[in-house]
């Protein structure tokens, strides 16, 4: 029996009377990949936002690594080992690929303000060490050729990859990926799927993944959670979900 890295316990969230999540519970086991699927507006992104502290649920708890979160803010979520990517790419447009990824390591940098201003010595050693770590990620994601390019000039697929690199730079224990393959062609999707599987295998990172491409979801995830109108309507292995009548109804519609 593996440990659960994340327990989401009866979470409800609403915006001024509009319920986005209703009593949602699920668990993520350590070193596993969980996919969240559901129609548009089902509350998938809101769920991720609850997990990393962007939104505060009105009811329910989030328990990460055995600790129940109280009033958690994104900064603390990041500190305790959660990294994420966004549905609409949220890179820092004015910065180079390298700088973007280095920002992902900000929590690990220790040099004080004065030391950074003087640069020589401690700060320089630190910058060089973190550069080494970042270069490994760059190699891993095969983006060596663009490391000094400003991210604004990159095509969409590469930007998604850089965003993943930035998240990985933090060496997270739990990685939240919000539609990492949206808008990609088949080849790019294959690459991205492989990266996610590799991250999961090599670093042992647990992953929560929101994705619309059922093929991808069925191929790479260990468990699937299905949301519809803010409610969890199904949970299980890809195989179970494929045969779940309620899920099929939600997706295909059903005559009532």
């Amino acid at each position: 029996m593996t440990e659960n890295i994340l327990n989401v316990n009866k979470v409800s969230l609403s915006f001024g009377g509009v319920a986005a999540l209703k009593n949602v519970s699920f668990q993520v086991e350590e070193h596993k990949i969980l996919a969240i699927i559901g129609p548009n507006g089902a509350g998938k992104s809101s769920l991720l936002n609850v997990v990393n502290g962007v939104y505060k649920p009105q009811k329910g708890q989030v328990i990460f690594k055995g600790k129940t979160w109280k009033n958690v803010v994104p900064y603390e979520a990041a500190r305790s080992g959660i990294a994420r990517t966004f549905q609409n790419i949220a890179l820092f447009k004015g910065m180079s690929v390298l700088d973007n990824i280095l920002t992902g390591r900000n929590l690990k940098m220790r040099a004080g303000l004065l030391s950074q201003a003087i640069y020589l010595g401690k700060c320089q050693r630190e910058e060089t060490n973190h550069r080494k770590a970042v270069e490994q990620i760059i190699d891993f994601l095969q983006i060596q050729h663009i490391r000094k390019t400003p991210v604004g000039r990159l095509p969409y697929g590469l930007q998604k990859r850089v965003e993943l690199a930035r998240a990985l730079a933090a060496e997270p224990e739990l990685l939240l990926l919000d539609e990492p393959m949206a808008g990609m062609n088949v080849e790019e999707k294959e690459d991205m799927s492989r990266f996610i599987l590799d991250v999961n295998e090599e670093y042992g990172t647990s992953v929560i993944l929101i994705e619309h491409d059922m093929g991808v979801v069925m191929d790479i995830s260990d468990k699937v959670v299905v949301l519809d109108y803010g409610k969890k309507i199904g949970e299980g292995t890809p195989e179970e979900i494929r045969n779940n009548q309620e899920v099929i109804d939600a997706y295909l519609g059903v005559a009532r």
Partner: peptide, 14 residues
């Protein structure tokens, strides 16, 4: 620069 370009994303990466 991260805060300048996108503060929500900056906060999320710590």
């Amino acid at each position: 620069m991260a805060v300048r370009d996108m503060d929500v994303a900056a906060e999320v990466i710590g």
